[in-house]
Amino acid sequence: MTASDGVVSDGVVSARLGPVEQIPVGEGRAFLVGDEPVAVFRPRSGGLYALRAICPHRGGPLADGLVDAEVVMCPLHNHQFRLASGECVSGGGVADVDAYTATEEDGELVVSLRSPSG
């Protein structure tokens, strides 16, 4: 795990977290961005996605979940969340998880605590 105190710009915390290769293709890894635990995913289909690292259902570690092009599946009770939006798609009344923005800049992983849509 790489932790970063983060930089605040425009009221949004963001952090450079080191080489993208820390995350094996098709998996996720957890990072701290400021005080926020963030799971960053690197699906085989490409792209980088960031969600709050803790499953809103029972606190499971999302970074340990299986991932496909669309969703991550929490390893504790198999709830599924969209990588792009954090929307829970597995039913059962589980809340969505916060989604953040992850990008690659010069081979380095950059995460900001800004929702990917805005």
Binding site: R29, A30, A53, I54, G59
Partner: peptide
Amino acid sequence: TPGQFHDALPII
């Protein structure tokens, strides 16, 4: 794999 045994729930 890189980070195979890294903590997935930082701060907890």
